[in-house]
């Protein structure tokens, strides 16, 4: 995997790009948890040229302060795709990244050959409210994100330093670690809040009909963030979509079942 920083719009943004593999290009847009090169992306890179940008406001990617809403964000991504010289390719988005992928495909449907939305946000169904992931305690968040609470990822999330917040001394090593965690959380989650606060409906349902290309929806059967009922809501509006439920997985379906999800995606996008 190769990591680089790409200036966009004359340096207004500097975007971390993780890339690996050969073949047809495949763009991956990460979710609210941020971007890590994980087994899912590694597996996809065995059959495709995977390009994974890190969203401004997350980690080292800069320029988020110039973006206010989903409209600004879409035009940033169009500039990014121009800078990467990407046309006629498949796009995969997870969670917030799925919402952005759907927005991009609605604006320029001809640019994307295939669209894969993995547990995308972007709709609001009062019968099945999306969990308020901005406020829930780490243990509850972990329940919603992961099927297997005994997994390393779930345990790490459940024990994040938020639980220790009240008695932080910035002059100790532990205190510094808590503050570092909080700084990154404040940066990335307030970035996510621009597009998802207070509920993640910013009008996508009015635009979904424009996604005329083949679209694959993938959902963890036990997703506690946006339950699989949203898969049905997307299916109701998308003209050309199929829905695939993955068992033994929650919102982080591509982390919990990397091989199964990568196989689904590669097979779907690979059909030219």
């Amino acid at each position: 995997m190769k990591e680089s920083s790409l200036p966009v719009r004359n340096g207004q943004f500097n975007v971390d790009i993780l890339q690996s593999g050969d073949g047809l290009p495949l763009l991956f847009l990460h979710g609210i948890g941020g971007l890590q090169w994980d087994p899912f992306l590694e597996r996809l890179a065995s059959s495709h040229r995977v390009i994974a940008p890190r969203m401004p406001g997350f980690g080292g990617s800069t320029g988020s302060e110039t973006l206010s809403d989903i409209h600004d964000l879409v035009y940033f991504y169009l500039d990014l795709l121009d800078a990467l010289d990407l046309r006629d390719f498949g796009i995969v988005g997870h969670s917030l990244g799925g919402m952005i992928a759907a927005e991009l495909a609605a604006v320029q449907p001809e640019r994307f050959t295939k669209v894969v939305l993995i547990a995308p946000l972007g709709l609001w169904d009062p019968e099945h409210p999306v969990l308020d992931f901005f406020s829930v305690a780490p243990a509850e968040l972990s329940q919603a994100m992961y099927f297997d609470q005994k997994s390393e990822a779930a345990k790490a999330l459940a024990s994040t330093p938020q639980a220790k917040l009240p008695e932080v001394d910035p002059d100790t090593e532990e205190g510094k670690a808590v503050i570092d965690f909080y700084v990154e959380r404040a940066k990335s989650m307030s970035t996510a809040a621009k597009y998802l606060w207070p509920i993640p409906n910013k009008g996508l349902s009015k635009r979904l009909h424009r996604l005329t290309q083949q679209t694959l929806l993938i959902w963890g059967a036990d997703d506690g963030i946006c339950p699989p009922a949203y898969g049905i809501d997307f299916m109701d509006t998308l003209p050309n979509a199929t829905l695939h439920l993955v068992p033994e997985a929650a919102h982080m379906v591509c982390v919990e079942q990397p091989d199964a999800v990568a196989e689904l995606v590669a097979g779907f996008v690979g059909e030219a």
Partner: peptide
């Protein structure tokens, strides 16, 4: 509830870095 006391982005980065929020907030001390 602690999750309501400090929405992400409500405190500025500089304030978090100063370690102040924990020591001065009266609310949401789990």
């Amino acid at each position: 509830y602690a999750g309501f006391a400090d929405a992400p982005g409500y405190r500025t980065i500089e304030t978090i870095k100063a370690g102040l929020m924990a020591q001065t907030s009266s609310f949401g001390r789990p």
